[in-house]
């Protein structure tokens, strides 16, 4: 999927762990891992809202659109 989620980068910048963020956002650790590892097929707006609230960022800080070729390069 050409949409990538830079959750790990923002988490490092804010100094917050996955467990802590999962508790604050109110989703399971498994679901947050799916999001962090770019395995998610869809994200609910209320989840995105909670993430932005807890990480004090904009949706654009978390989501990035990369065309397929660039995505492949990014994965490499």
């Amino acid at each position: 999927m050409p949409i990538l989620i830079h959750l790990d980068r923002v988490m490092v910048e804010r100094g917050i762990s996955l467990t802590e963020l999962a508790e604050k956002v109110g989703i399971t650790l498994a679901n947050l891992s799916i999001l962090k590892n770019n395995k998610a097929r869809a994200i609910r707006l209320n989840t995105l809202e909670a993430l932005c609230r807890e990480l004090n960022c904009q949706p654009g800080d978390l989501l990035v659109y990369l065309p397929n070729s660039e995505e492949e390069k990014a994965k490499e």
Partner: peptide, 8 residues
């Protein structure tokens, strides 16, 4: 079902 499972 897969879509539903991977919706966060």
């Amino acid at each position: 079902k897969k879509d539903q499972e991977f919706t966060v």
